[in-house]
Design a binder for these strands. Sequence first.
DNA 1: GTCTATACAAGGATAGAC
DNA 2: GTCTATCCTTGTATAGAC
Lengths: 205, 205
Amino acid sequence: MSKEKISTREKIVARALELFNDQGIEYVGVRELAKDLDMKGGNITYYFPTKDDIILELASRLSEDNNRVIVKKEDITIQGFLNIFEQAYQNHYKYRSLFLSFPNLLKQTPALSEKYHQRQLLRRDTITHQLKSLIKSGHLRELSTVELDVLLKSIVMTSRFWISDAVIENSSGPDAMMKYVKQVAGLLLLVATAKGRKIIEGALK
Amino acid sequence: MSKEKISTREKIVARALELFNDQGIEYVGVRELAKDLDMKGGNITYYFPTKDDIILELASRLSEDNNRVIVKKEDITIQGFLNIFEQAYQNHYKYRSLFLSFPNLLKQTPALSEKYHQRQLLRRDTITHQLKSLIKSGHLRELSTVELDVLLKSIVMTSRFWISDAVIENSSGPDAMMKYVKQVAGLLLLVATAKGRKIIEGALK
DNA sequence: GTCTATACAAGGATAGAC
DNA sequence: GTCTATCCTTGTATAGAC
């Protein structure tokens, strides 16, 4: 944690993420990664027995990064709410290759799947809490249970798939990110009060 | 088109789709497919030079199926609108393996990508037209351009990713489909008039 | 602890015999 | 139209050098 030499393990993880993000996880071989790092494939195997272990390490780091960002706050504002998404989407972008292989990843590795679902329950709870707070503060109108669920689901799906959507739309640069934060803002706009609308429209510019 | 023997080519496509849907495109090898069909790998190569050619054939068929379903209708009703999505999602489910590899697929094969984007423009146009029709008929409230775009984008993203989402949620059976049709209905509910709300709430049961 | 060399099975793809 | 033989690349595993 100071001026220490970066460990081989750390080098592997860092470079793997770069190559994965550039070329896609499926298209980066262990040998290719090794060659790029001026070492032999077997050496990577020493630190990470399988390629999946590298991916799991990356997934774990993404999760930690997001835990730091998505927290329950009392009396949240519209800007605060959107700010959380902006920070979370920055983390998503940093680990973007993971999102493109997401469904396959979860299906393959049940350990990851279970952790993910547990965190998702917390995330849902946090976002629900924040939305209710925005209703209470008069920025969003009163919503039925069904409406709240629909809104939540659309926000969650935007968050899960914005990277995939950006790839499909051929606009996968880092600037595409704000488009999807604005999509979340737009979803709030659909159920905003006059008071909330004014603020959201400011954020949408 | 009659009592003709099913061509080898047709057998390959049909069985490939089944195996792809069951195991995932990436996890079905050409040899495995061949063995399942009681033929040799090289024979499949004769009909489809590469595995991608099989996938492209499947993608083309999905597109044709959806072209039959998603058409511009004058004076559409809420039920008619949701019915289109139900039929489209049935087609999606039929070719579900494609959706799980979708972003990678488009990135790899520019030919497919171009066709897809052209069709998407038409689809967007069609849905926008229908939403405006529902506004005019007094089922949805007046929407600003931004609001209409947001609504459209969420509907499009639901359609693109509902299969991936179902996989993530571990509920990828055919019955999961209606959950996402209802999500589309729910999105309409957020901007429905009292008149529209009554109809949508009926559809949501 | 760190790394190299090497082997193996499985995948996509090709050329050419029948 | 069908199939064999073969090539190259992957992911993975292991034996052993430093």
